[in-house]
Amino acid sequence: MLTRDTATFLDHARRIDTDFGPATARAAFMVAPDGFRLAEQSAADNRYMAEAGSFDAARASAQHRELQRAFAEVIPTICFAGDPATPDALFPNNVFATAAGRYVVGRMRHPVRQREAARDDIRGFFGGVLDYAEIDLSTQPHPCELTGALVIDRARGLGFAGLSERCDEEGARLMHEALGLRATLLFDLAEGEYHTNVVLAVLAGRAALVCTKGFADPKVVDTIAALYAPHAVLLSPAEHAAFAGNAIALSDDVVWMSAHAGRSLTATSREALAAAGFQVRTVELDAIEAGGGSLRCCVGEIY
């Protein structure tokens, strides 16, 4: 099912069992922020990006390394070298995604990011080392920036596809089919939003962080909240602005977000996450956040 109808989606999703696959990834991959700097093309439709003078490549590299060390305490986490010709490559989840036995290469909107899809080392790792089948969407014309545009409930096989200049309806359909999802809800992001994973996180299939102002239609927020009740955490505009929605669960009991996001959490949000069985762990990522993304954007999941 691929639909914009929130009532139809909710009715269908409520009847789906949590037997699609593991709720969290078995490993993670990252790409080092080598040559980290302002990418003018990406800045054109990413209001979260800082001015060029705010980029500190050395600090971003140190923070990225610390993030990998933290993740490695939970799951195996590998890091590929960066490339100064692709300054946004530290956000690899937009370009590469996996499902059981396959990997998908996305179609990026901006040429500076389309270069990332051609990396032979990452393709070789998935195809040659892991022996995953390849589904290459990078050469077709419809933008589909994978798990930036598409937030996935891996336990149920559900997708939440926010449409913007980074993902159109056909791109959403291609991702839905490539990842073999059972049902995907299509909706428009609010004006000024570029990726769904900045405004929504589904945590281990049983909870959701929802930035209410990130959705054009409040009915979509109501639908997601109803599906994950009583563990739908509706975030305030301040939490949203601090990237609290750009979070991830890599295990059943921990939600990861940047230190800035963690500091923004209200007592109510923390209590709601605790009630859902999650502790909050954070890593300082202020230099990386200058690039317009935060912790979730740095993580490619391996299923």
Rank of each mutant, 00 (worst) to 15 (best):
V151S: 03
V280T: 12
A274S: 13
H240R: 03
A155I: 07
L200W: 11
R156M: 07
G162S: 04
N246F: 01
L273V: 12
A57I: 08
V31N: 00
L235V: 02
V233S: 00
A201N: 06
N93P: 13
L200S: 11
H260R: 08
D222R: 14
D252E: 10
A274M: 07
I248N: 04
E193H: 13
V210G: 09
H110Y: 15
P143N: 00
H12E: 15
T86E: 12
L38Y: 06
R270G: 04
D19T: 14
P141A: 02
T77W: 11
A62M: 12
P143Y: 03
T8F: 06
G53M: 06
T6F: 12
R14H: 10
D88E: 14
A60N: 00
A229Y: 00
K219R: 13
R263L: 02
P92I: 12
E271H: 14
A238F: 03
E239Q: 09
H142D: 02
E40A: 15
C297M: 03
H231G: 06
C211E: 06
G127M: 04
H176S: 04
A43H: 12
G53F: 09
A172T: 07
G128D: 05
S264T: 00
L146Y: 00
A81C: 08
V199P: 07
V210M: 04
V283G: 10
T184N: 02
A57R: 03
E40Y: 05
S164W: 03
P22N: 12
V95K: 05
L234Y: 01
N46G: 07
F126R: 09
A27C: 13
E165Y: 02
Y194A: 10
P111C: 09
A99V: 15
L200A: 13
V95E: 07
T77L: 11
A267S: 07
L200K: 05
M257W: 00
T282N: 07
T223C: 15
T3P: 10
D188F: 10
A60Q: 00
A39T: 10
V112D: 14
T223P: 04
A155G: 13
A25G: 14
S164K: 00
P92L: 12
A28I: 05
I122Y: 05
I224F: 02
A89H: 14
T6A: 13
I78W: 09
F9I: 09
L174W: 09
S54Y: 06
D153N: 11
R263P: 00
R182P: 12
F187E: 10
R37L: 04
T18G: 11
L174E: 11
E193Q: 15
L227N: 05
G162V: 01
E40C: 05
W256K: 04
T24A: 13
